[in-house]
């Protein structure tokens, strides 16, 4: 027992492979950045549909949100990776291959767009009607109102909630290893396959993710609070 304990705390094997593993961690960041961009763009579009005046648009927005918010991210990643190329291929009439990285970004981006849509919507609906009416009375067009009056306030309001969702999204990037995107977890399992020493490697991976997520999230929360306070003051 104590032997196993020292084996798993002894991280020298983990350290030995630091270059490969670091490259894997960068892949996590890379997947995160791309899918966060997709999630924000699609989420904003869905939120705008949900607050639209005509009901068919609202309905599409609601279906989008309910579909993706209630879908487990692993099955969505698998579905996009295995099913989507076949469906699209049948549509255009030839074989289609989607790179695992692209599947991962599409799947995670769309799943998290559901969460971001709700955050955006809550932010939009929290803005007093008077602001929009005042802008309209000044003769601003709808798109200008969105850009100058609504979005700047929404971003500030939704920031704490959005940071939480970015954290969840980053944590979700670990599952892309399951469709062979070479992220940290993937590299860890590759190293385990050659070294046959799962204890220190899995422990090292857990500690690395914990350190990265905990400190970055705390730092970002601190900065965003400071920024919000400065603007509200």
């Amino acid at each position: 027992m104590s032997d196993a304990f020292w084996q798993s705390v002894d991280l020298s094997t983990f350290w030995e492979y630091r270059q490969v593993l670091l490259a894997g961690l960068w892949f996590n960041v890379y997947v995160f950045a791309c899918s966060a961009t997709v999630a924000l763009a699609v989420g904003l579009a869905a939120a705008l549909l949900r607050v639209n005046r005509s009901w068919p648009f609202r309905w599409i927005g609601t279906v989008h949100v309910e579909l993706f918010r209630n879908a487990p991210d692993y099955i969505m990643v698998v579905w996009v990776h295995f099913v989507l190329p076949l469906l699209l291929g049948a549509l255009i009439g030839r074989r289609l291959e989607i790179h695992p990285f692209v599947s991962a970004v599409i799947a995670l981006g769309f799943v998290y767009s559901g969460y971001f849509a709700e955050t955006f919507r809550a932010g939009i609906q929290a803005i007093p009607v008077g602001h929009v009416e005042a802008a309209r009375a000044c003769g601003m067009a709808d798109r200008l109102i969105l850009r100058r009056i609504i979005l700047p306030q929404v971003v500030r309001r939704m920031l704490p909630e959005a940071v939480n969702q970015f954290v969840s999204l980053f944590k979700a990037t670990t599952i892309v290893s399951l469709i062979a995107v070479p992220d940290l977890m993937y590299q860890v399992s590759m190293v385990i396959a050659t070294e046959m020493r799962p204890l220190p490697l899995y422990t090292g991976a857990a500690l690395t993710y914990f350190a990265v997520i905990y400190f970055v999230a705390t730092g970002v929360r601190l900065l965003s609070e400071r920024w919000r306070n400065k603007i509200y003051a």
Binding site: K171, T174, I213
Partner: peptide, 15 residues
């Protein structure tokens, strides 16, 4: 809270 569930899962299952 700060560790991804997948990482925790394999850590608990194998370590």
């Amino acid at each position: 809270r700060a560790t991804p569930i997948f990482v925790q899962l394999v850590w608990i299952a194998y370590v």
